[in-house]
């Protein structure tokens, strides 16, 4: 028989703790890797905050740009992003939630369910610039919305649809079966049960998903580049068929195009700061809401 190391040594002699160099090395390596993301986030955040704070002022966020955008504030830019995001969410939430209801409550195993799930999965992987192309071809040109708030919001809505569906589906599926049973046992129909019991119970989860979706939408540039974004517009659009300015696009344009790149650096930093604050605030809100729900979920 082949002997195992220390096999025949009495435990008294073999039990001294050994230095585990290999494990020590690899675990410290993993530890370092593990914090790489956090450190990068911290570095980029401090860069944006440090530079952005120096330009941030009340005027900066409430005044429109002046002097060919080399001075002034970014009020229309902020409004543009807010309008795009809100309209996008108004369009996507009903469709997303109903699709989730279909998946969670009505679907039966089969070709239809499979193709819906495959489509959602595939849509989630489509690059955002491809959504931009689609929006340009269909909403801007074919449906003749022009480069507009509406075309941009619809493009963003299609892009974020898979995310909204899957977070809503998760929220719906977390509703315990006993709740539904109780309602059905009272003589409620399936739809009444969904409408009166399942949806209200799942609502906090659905909203959390929507808020996190908002964070993603408001930072997107590629889908709105050729569908909604204007280089300059003097104020808040008067209709959904007008183009809008948007925070991410504003950063891109000021940082890469034109002859005032260096001159407008402060505005670029300020815009980046405002965008980051919006995105992070939405994210934090979503994360806190989710934690609260997890704690509260007594069932």
């Amino acid at each position: 028989m082949h002997t195992i190391e220390n096999m025949n040594k009495p435990f008294e002699l073999a039990c001294k703790r050994k230095l585990n160099i290999k494990q020590g090395f690899f675990l410290s390596l993993i530890r370092t890797l593990g914090f790489s993301g956090a450190i990068t986030l911290f570095l980029i955040l401090s860069f944006v905050f440090y530079n952005g704070f120096q330009v941030l002022s009340w005027e900066f966020i409430t005044e429109p740009p002046i002097d060919a955008m080399t001075k002034g504030g970014i009020f229309p830019v902020i409004m543009g992003t807010i309008l795009l995001t809100i309209l996008c969410m108004v369009l996507v939430i009903p469709v997303g939630v109903i699709t989730a209801i279909f998946l969670a409550e009505y679907s039966k195993p089969g070709v239809m369910l499979k193709s819906v799930m495959m489509s959602i999965y595939t849509l989630a992987g489509v690059p955002s610039v491809v959504f931009g192309l689609f929006g340009l071809g269909v909403f801007v040109v074919m449906l003749n919305f022009g480069t507009s708030l509406l075309a941009g919001s619809m493009t963003l809505a299609i892009m974020i649809l898979p995310y909204i569906i899957s977070t809503s589906e998760e929220a719906l599926k977390a509703v315990p079966y006993s709740f539904k049973e109780a309602s059905l046992a009272c003589g409620a129909t399936k739809w009444q049960t969904i409408w009166k019991v399942v949806l209200p119970t799942a609502m906090p989860g659905i909203l959390t998903g929507a808020i996190l979706g908002t964070a993603k939408v408001s930072g997107e540039t590629a889908p709105i580049m050729f569908t909604a974004a204007a280089f300059f517009s003097p104020g808040v659009p008067r209709s959904v068929f007008e183009p809008v300015m948007a925070l991410p696009y504003h950063i891109y344009v000021l940082a890469t195009a034109g002859t005032h790149i260096e001159e407008t650096r402060p505005i670029q930093y300020g815009t980046a700061l405002v965008l980051i604050v919006i995105v992070l605030a939405m994210n934090l809100l979503g994360i806190i809401l989710r934690l609260k729900q997890r704690k509260k979920r007594a069932w």
């Binding site: 073999a14 039990c15 001294k16 703790r17 050994k18």
Partner: peptide, 20 residues
Amino acid sequence: LFHNIDIYDKNTDVIELRRR
């Protein structure tokens, strides 16, 4: 105590213990 050695002693090799 395992073979009169306290297995919770900080010097005890838990790997060797679990092998045995």
